[in-house]
Amino acid sequence: MQLPLTYVLSFSALLFGIGLYGALTLQNAIRILMCIEIMLNAVNVNLIAFSRYLSPLQPAGQAFVIFVMTVAAAEVAVGLAIILMIARRRDTIDIDRMNLLKW
């Protein structure tokens, strides 16, 4: 592969932009969680790309991606548990109607 680093980073920036747009506009809490996962993946692409182009023999960036995946897995598990609890108690997962604490 001969592509310069800029192309991989641009791909990751576009992926992050799509995830950010979804997280800001969607109303379904589970889909917002999906968009957060997309953003985390974009960050992982950045880490892998810098690891490949700048320190190819010492893959510390790849080890860091493993940590990001761990935290993402824990985040999805806890986030889904919270969403399911809200769905049971308030009968909605629309974030516009989760306004109990809203002034």
Binding site: F16, I18, L57
Partner: peptide, 29 residues
């Protein structure tokens, strides 16, 4: 939201191009 997302992506792509990271990946890995 459109402004935030598109603005962020455009800014980052612009900065990456300005940074001039033009070299291909190192051969040894």
């Amino acid at each position: 939201p459109v402004g935030a997302a598109a603005g962020f992506a455009a800014l980052m792509v612009y900065l990456y191009h300005q940074a001039g990271l033009r070299q291909p990946p190192p051969a040894e890995v």
